Amino acid sequence: MSFTYLNQLPTPEEIKKEYPLSDKLTALKKERDAMIRDVLTGKDDHFLVVIGPCSADSEDPVCDYVSRLTAVQEKVKDRLIIIPRIYTNKPRTTGEGYKGIATQPDPEKAPDMIAGLIAMRKMHIRAIEESGLTSADEMLYPENWGYVEDLLSYVAIGARSVEDQQHRLTVSGFDVASGMKNPTSGDFSVMLNSVYAAQHPHHFTYRGFEVETTGNDLTHVVLRGAVSKHGNATQNYHYEDIMRLIEMYDKMDLKNPAAVVDANHSNSGKKYKEQIRIVKEVMHNRQLSDEIRKMVKGVMIESYIEPGNQKIGEHIYGKSITDPCLGWEDSERLIYDIAEMC
């Protein structure tokens, strides 16, 4: 056989029973989910800022970072809703490299998925407890949703996953904000078709069950730039890109039109300091056009305690071991600038 079966994984119910979310934090998540819903449905004009490390590789610095956001959120609460990025799964273009804490709780050791599922859940819970902020994660593996479904207020579907049928159908069963990124090709039609699929009910198989879903009306698009046929990064956050997106949205039967702009990845060419300029351009364009203001509901920023990135094994506290991130001082200043420009 091509497969070697190593361990039987515990079920989501077993993991959640061992590491439960308290009633107090459950109520907090419900409150934040409602706030985010109101933004995406146009009932509230707060702006979403999804911000945090490229990958959440270590509990202590991640929770330290997230807790720093608490004081900032309090100062901008009249204008912004901060959603910490706690991304526990890392997609790899070639399949090589660190795949996230859910797979490798220790980046310098072999994969251990049972320990990884526990580490993933513990980190999310600790971050909520210490910061009072519920977070975002990327759903790289649809079957892992049950392990964190009671913890997350935002879910991202990555550029490599957005065309996958199982991802689209699984999102149709979520009741939280879900952002569908454009594929690496940059094709807006693929992204919008993914939103359409996730917003509608479906009947399919999931984790060994026959299931039905009701559709997720909070599914929206995330613009992350693209890669040309020659391998060059191309941007899709400019004024004309958003106007084209608005036109395409208008031609489809979609609920709650909304876009979030990912300031890193191909939009910045992974030049992490460019995120500052990109975010400010997005905010400026919202000031220029009521249509863009209604469409663009938030931004994504890759940020950590220390700027840049490091190799696995260097052990610089709070520095990314995957893509380079904006440092804390620049990030804090940028959040205040976003609030001023809202």
Rank of each mutant, 00 (worst) to 15 (best):
Y87F: 13
T88K: 04
Q287N: 15
D250C: 09
A263T: 03
R277A: 05
M120D: 06
R207C: 15
L133M: 09
G186C: 03
T26C: 01
G179C: 09
V148L: 10
K280H: 03
C342I: 05
R126P: 02
A56N: 07
K24Q: 15
V260Y: 01
V190T: 09
S228Q: 04
A110Y: 12
E210P: 04
H238P: 00
K99R: 15
N236P: 05
E149Y: 02
P53Y: 04
E332F: 06
G327E: 03
L28T: 12
D290K: 06
M180C: 07
D33A: 04
E329T: 09
L245E: 03
Y249E: 08
L254R: 04
T322P: 01
E163V: 10
V195D: 02
L9R: 05
D106V: 14
N256G: 06
A263M: 10
L151Q: 03
E306V: 15
N285A: 01
T11M: 04
N144L: 09
E18F: 10
I338Q: 00
P307F: 01
E240N: 07
V221P: 05
Y317L: 04
K16A: 14
D175S: 11
K294Y: 14
Q310Y: 14
V62T: 14
D112E: 06
D187C: 11
A159Y: 03
T70E: 06
V227G: 11
P10L: 10
R207N: 15
I125C: 01
E163D: 14
D187I: 10
E332P: 00
T70H: 04
M341R: 01
R286V: 06
V171C: 08
I301P: 00
H265S: 07
G298E: 00
H124E: 06
G100Q: 09
N216W: 12
S172H: 08
S22A: 04
K297V: 03
V221D: 03
E14L: 14
Y237V: 01
S161R: 05
A71W: 11
R207T: 13
L25I: 10
M300Y: 03
V49F: 00
K17A: 13
S331D: 07
L69C: 03
D253W: 05
I125D: 02
I82P: 00
K75T: 11
E302L: 05
C325E: 04
L133P: 11
G52A: 06
V260H: 00
N144F: 15
V39P: 03
Q310S: 10
E129G: 14
K30A: 13
N7T: 10
V279G: 00
M35A: 15
M243E: 14
S172I: 04
V62M: 08
I338P: 00
R277P: 05
A339M: 08
S2R: 13
Y147G: 02
D106N: 14
P183G: 12
E108F: 12
V227D: 07
E332N: 03
A263L: 11
V49D: 00
S178D: 12
